[in-house]
């Protein structure tokens, strides 16, 4: 399962970076979604998968090898929340930019660097 998910992470990264390089801002945002999901999955996998057992244990029921590592799950939760906030900001920015310029083309963004 880990190998499969690792391959998925790779595919998501590839797709994400490909989308980042597209010309449309909306596709760029989709690229960000892919990247952030790939990263979250990577962090989640970092402690290995423990099938069928949660990270919570009831009092006195200590079976250390049968519990999942709670830390990556907590990290992923935080990362997802941060990702959500950033995504919404990016969408709002895109919306505003479209309102001001009426374009979705990243090739139009050449005025600030010369």
């Amino acid at each position: 399962m880990e190998t499969l998910l690792a391959i998925l992470v790779g595919i998501l990264y590839t797709a994400g970076f490909y989308m980042l390089l597209r010309r449309s801002i909306l596709k760029f945002i989709i690229g960000i979604i892919f990247l952030s999901n790939a990263t979250n999955l990577l962090v989640f996998l970092s402690a290995g998968l423990v099938a069928g057992s949660p990270a919570f244990i009831k009092d006195g029921n200590m079976q250390a090898e049968k519990t999942a590592d709670p830390l990556p799950q907590a990290l992923v939760l935080t990362a997802i929340v941060i990702g959500l906030g950033i995504l919404v900001f990016t969408l709002a920015l895109k919306y505003k930019y479209f309102e001001v310029t009426g374009t979705d083309d990243l090739d139009q963004l050449k005025k600030t660097d010369d």
Partner: peptide
């Protein structure tokens, strides 16, 4: 807005790499 899109794009990529590094 143009400047902030550029700023956002590279800094977000940086953050993702940072987080991936933390995972590893």
């Amino acid at each position: 807005l143009e400047g902030s899109i550029k700023y956002l794009a590279l800094n977000l990529t940086g953050s993702m790499l940072f987080l991936a590094g933390i995972g590893l």
